[in-house]
Structure formats: structure tokens, C-alpha cells
């Protein structure tokens, strides 16, 4: 069963059509990279799936639950309760982390398990401790985000998303706000998650990484999916002129 199904999704900001008829699906355990030039609609696509933007039309299904459908040209969202249930199955890692600055690393991670999932505090702390270890942040439990490097902050935000045990994890350009030296540590973490068969959708400008880590690549431009497929195929042997032109700008790929 597909964890995520998107059909004919469209989204307009004022007069600007940002998404035009987007369809794709993500299977369990798949790692999908979404690449494309700035303004191609990658982030908007992610935000529509994560309910941070309202789509104008199309259909979205998450884990077998219908989130959005279109009837007579009108977008209809599922009832609030379903939307909430769906939201908890999806995790999102933001480009600029969006950690809560007034909470320590530990507090940031246990906030949702404790207050939303109503886990006992001890259990939430135990899970958080494991995640902190996994992210290589042991000893930073009591630190505040402002005391951490960008790479460490992004690892905290990944741990925070994982603490809710989502079925699929989205990344919105997770390394774009980081110094080049720090991108490596984030990419390593994502790679480890991929090895654990975590289902992920990653919007990224890191072409080499997209080729290495993902088993499916989507190339977007101008609000359309121009091409999608196997990474080796798309990066190495694309027949599409637009894809070729885009990839040419990233040397070494």
C-alpha cells in the first residue's frame, strides 16, 4: 500500500499557478528526493501535503486515509479529526529548524509526545534519550537551541519529528540554512534513517546526496513533474532536455 498518494494536485497563489497537476506516490520504505530549480514548486508541494498550505484541487491520501479530494472542481478536505490523525503520521523537518528557542533540547523533543500523544513523561524522556544518542547529541539534553551549531539544531529538529514515530518524514531543504561543512552531518543522519527503511521525502539541492540516498527521484520545474524515476537513470542517462539542462549546472553529477 502506498503511504502517500498525490493525484492531480494544484495550487495557486493569487494569479501564480505554483502547482499544476502533480501526481506521484510514495511506497513504504521508499526514499524519494524532489529536485528542481528555485520556484519550481517543490516546497509548496511539501507544504500542501503537510497541511501548511491549502491546495486548490486534486487528491491526497496518507496511509490509506483520504485527506483531500475534489468534487465538482471544489477541493474538499477531510474532517478536522482525520486531518489531525493524518498530521501525526507525518513528520516535517524545516529548512530553518523552527526549534522552540525557550525550551531545552530535551523539552523540544518531549513536548509533543508528552502533550499530544499523552505519553507518560518518563517514557517520553526515555525515547528522547535514545533519539538524542542516535543523533550524536548526548550531553546536550539541557542545552538551548541558541547554544548549538546549525547542524546540531537541525539534528534536534529531526529527533523532535521522529519522537512522534511518524510513518513518513518530510525534509524541506534540510541543509540549505547550514554552512557547507555542516551539511555532511545532516546528510549522514538521513542516510542512516534510510538504512533503517524510514519512509522519507526530501526536497533538496544536494544532487550527489539525492543520487546516493534515494531510490526514487522527482524532477520538478514550473509547477510540473518533468521527469521521475530511478536515480541512476535520471542522473546518468536522462533523455529529457530540461532535466539535462538543469543537471548540467551541478558539476560532478
Amino acid at each position: 500500500m502506498a503511504i502517500l498518494e498525490v493525484k492531480n494536485l494544484s495550487k495557486t497563489f493569487g494569479d501564480l499557478k505554483v502547482l499544476k497537476d502533480i501526481s506521484f506516490s510514495v511506497e513504504e520504505g521508499q526514499v524519494v528526493s524532489v529536485i528542481g530549480p528555485s520556484g519550481s514548486g517543490k516546497s509548496t508541494l511539501l507544504r500542501c501535503i503537510n497541511q501548511l498550505e491549502h491546495a486548490d484541487g486534486g487528491e491526497i491520501n496518507v496511509c490509506g486515509m483520504n485527506m483531500l479530494r475534489t468534487e465538482n472542481g471544489k477541493a474538499i478536505y477531510a474532517p478536522k479529526k482525520t486531518l489531525r490523525e493524518i498530521r501525526l503520521k507525518i513528520g516535517l523537518v524545516f529548512q530553518n529548524f523552527n526549534l522552540f528557542p525557550h525550551m531545552s533540547v530535551m523539552q523540544n523533543i518531549i513536548e509533543a509526545p508528552f502533550r499530544v500523544l499523552k505519553q507518560p513523561k518518563q517514557d517520553a524522556i526515555k525515547t528522547a534519550q535514545e533519539l538524542i544518542g542516535k543523533m550524536g547529541l548526548t550531553g546536550k539534553e539541557k542545552s538551548y537551541p541558541c547554544e548549538l551549531s546549525g547542524g546540531q539544531q537541525q539534528r534536534v529538529s529531526i529527533a523532535r519529528a521522529l519522537a512522534l514515530k511518524p510513518d513518513v518524514l518530510f525534509f524541506d531543504e534540510p541543509t540549505s540554512a547550514l554552512d557547507p561543512e555542516l551539511t555532511g552531518e545532516i546528510l549522514k543522519v538521513i542516510k542512516e534513517l534510510a538504512e533503517e527503511k524510514m519512509t522519507m521525502v526530501i526536497v533538496t539541492h544536494e544532487m550527489e546526496f539525492a543520487r546516493d540516498v534515494s531510490n526514487h527521484v522527482i524532477f520538478m520545474d514550473g509547477g510540473f513533474i518533468v521527469e521521475e524515476g530511478d536515480p541512476a537513470e535520471l542522473f546518468g542517462n536522462t533523455q529529457n532536455e530540461r532535466t539535462k539542462q538543469f543537471l548540467k549546472r551541478y558539476k560532478g553529477v
Binding site: R84, R87, G91, L92, F94, N98, V116, L164
Partner: peptide, 14 residues
Amino acid sequence: IPVGQYEAAQMLGL
């Protein structure tokens, strides 16, 4: 307060 704080809270189901 940056809008990202609201979005992060929303994504966590608060």
C-alpha cells in the same frame, strides 16, 4: 514571533 514557530507547533500536533 516568526510564523515558523506556529508551523512547527502545528506539525507536532499541538
